[in-house]
């Protein structure tokens, strides 16, 4: 029986009653289920990390920290290190984040701030969400057959006229950082746009009303009020998008050139950790597989750091703008 000392002494007309035992049972069952789901995710992640760690252990012992500071990946001599891949991963993802973030937030504003009619908005939204459903092989093929030929004349022109500028320091000879980063940007666009749009939609109508009520123009309302108000949600979108860019494999393996070089030039071929894994794994011997596992751990660590940093920035903006915690 549920303990209820109040029924006796309350007015005899009251309809108030405590929750039944069944209600309490449902409550506990649901709580158990929620904890179970949360715990299983933690266990799964821990399992993956540990398994990777065991597989990578021999390589970690052998190469130590030199693995992330060295620049050679030579199967024949058994020298493995991934600094160029780390550079390529972070650099390509950052460029993609800038481009994809800029357009993603722009699209989110366009969709939510009554620029378009509600029906048209739905169409736009569906198209953008479709972008997320395209397999990355298709992006890779599109990059090779459409984007690279399109980029070539532009890249050549930039290199010829502004070759002194480090970003345009080399020629684009087919695959390279620029096409890879552009495709990455398109791939993370739906994530950033969808999550940012949700953040904008969550802003109560009265906030918008207050901003217009002060006599702000549409541009001022969006830039000075809506954007800061949505900033923590937008940041969440950017972090997710960045995470996706860091781990993207197939399209990058096809587009980035798979060359272990560190170059600031946008047109130079490069390599990323995920693409290294994908393209080297099928023919790798035991030693190389161990090194690849080590590389996978490094990728995991980068993703982890990015997420934690993103979370910290998000917490900061929440505190600053929304006064939470």
């Amino acid at each position: 029986m549920v303990y209820d000392p109040f029924k006796e002494s309350s007015s005899s007309r009251t309809l108030s009653a405590p929750p039944s035992s069944a209600d309490y049972l449902k409550d506990s069952l649901f709580r158990f289920f929620a904890y179970f789901c949360a715990l299983s995710i933690i266990i799964l992640v821990a399992y993956i990390v540990i398994e990777l760690g065991i597989q990578a252990y021999p390589a970690m012992e052998k190469h130590g920290l030199g693995f992330i500071t060295g620049t050679t990946w030579d199967t024949n001599q058994g020298i493995f290190s991934v600094l160029p891949e780390i550079w390529g991963t972070v650099y390509s993802s950052l460029i993609a984040l800038f481009i994809g973030g800029f357009f993603g937030i722009g699209i989110a504003i366009f969709l939510t701030q009554s620029f378009v009619h509600a029906k048209l908005e739905l169409t736009f939204r569906t198209i953008i969400e479709l972008l997320a459903a395209i397999p990355s092989v298709v992006y890779g093929l599109w990059g090779i057959y459409v984007l690279i030929p399109l980029l070539r004349p532009v890249a050549d022109w930039l290199h010829e006229t502004m070759g002194w500028f480090p970003l345009f320091g080399t020629e684009l000879s087919g695959p390279g950082l620029a096409p890879a980063a552009l495709v990455l940007a398109i791939m993370i666009l739906p994530t950033v746009a969808a999550i940012s749009a949700d953040a904008f939609r969550r802003i109560p109508y009265r906030v918008k009303e207050a901003a217009y009520g002060m006599g702000a123009t549409k541009w001022e309302v969006i830039l000075k009020v809506m954007l800061p108000t949505a900033s923590s949600g937008i940041l969440a979108g950017l972090v997710l998008g960045f995470g996706r860019a860091l781990g993207e494999t197939m399209a990058l393996a096809m587009l980035i050139g798979n060359v272990n070089e560190i170059s600031i030039s946008l047109f130079a071929p490069a390599n990323t950790l995920a693409s290294l894994l994908a393209s080297t794994f099928p023919e790798a011997g035991q030693l190389e597989i161990q090194a690849l596992m080590y590389a996978a751990l490094v990728l995991l660590a980068i993703t982890f750091i990015v997420n934690v940093a993103g979370l910290a920035v998000q917490q900061y903006t929440m505190r600053k703008f929304e006064g939470k915690k």
Binding site: R206, A210, G215, F321
Partner: peptide, 29 residues
């Protein structure tokens, strides 16, 4: 209407501060 609202201010039925600092809220206008 933007010009109209600059001269004719409004306090709404429900409080609707901006998500920014107290100071910035007042300095907004």
């Amino acid at each position: 209407p933007v010009v109209v609202r600059r001269y004719i201010g409004m306090v709404f039925q429900l409080p609707n501060p901006f998500s920014m600092s107290i100071y910035d809220n007042v300095a907004f206008g």
